[in-house]
């Protein structure tokens, strides 16, 4: 029986192709076929997350910023420069999303890390604190 290829190895292969400018459509087909044959299609999200981790290690960071309301240009700029500062990435792409559930503040999600300054998160922490008391 063939040895199971770990998710990390698959992700590293995909990341190499992306960074090296390889044949992306072919790689996509290969990966899809492998996941179907090995019955691991449920792992697709995790593989994609691993790919984003590896790309971040190589200086290519893509993330999302979630806020309840549209952020001002100055705030977006500040977030962009903060992310550049902490990740030391060569290339940063941030997508902005609106979600009323966060109530206020913002949440920046990067590969494997997060800064959560939303009101909903602070309320959750308060809830936990009072449960303990």
């Amino acid at each position: 029986m063939a040895r199971r290829v770990s998710r990390r190895v698959l992700a590293e292969y995909v990341a190499e192709v992306i960074v090296g400018g390889g044949d992306m459509p072919l790689t996509t087909q290969q990966l899809a076929a492998h996941l179907v044959v090995t019955r691991r299609t449920k792992e697709l999200d995790m593989i994609m997350r691993d790919v984003s981790f590896i790309l971040a290690d190589k200086g290519i960071v893509s993330g999302t910023v979630i806020s309840a309301y549209e952020l001002a240009q100055e705030t977006k700029k500040a977030i962009q420069s903060y992310v550049a500062d902490v990740s030391k990435a060569k290339s940063i792409s941030l997508s902005y999303q609106l979600d009323q559930a966060v109530i206020g503040g913002y949440k920046v999600s990067l590969p494997g890390s997060q800064i959560d300054r939303t009101i909903s998160h602070q309320l959750t922490q308060l809830k936990t604190r009072f449960k303990k008391v």
């Binding site: 920046v108 890390s113 997060q114 800064i115 300054r117 009072f130 008391v133």
Partner: peptide, 25 residues
């Protein structure tokens, strides 16, 4: 209770650095 609440709020205000996150699979 009020003291606890103040402490909790103080702690929350000092938090907010970039932290590593994972996801429950």
């Amino acid at each position: 209770l009020s003291k606890e609440l103040r402490e909790a709020i103080d702690q929350l205000e000092t938090q907010g650095n970039l932290g590593e996150v994972g996801v429950v699979v």
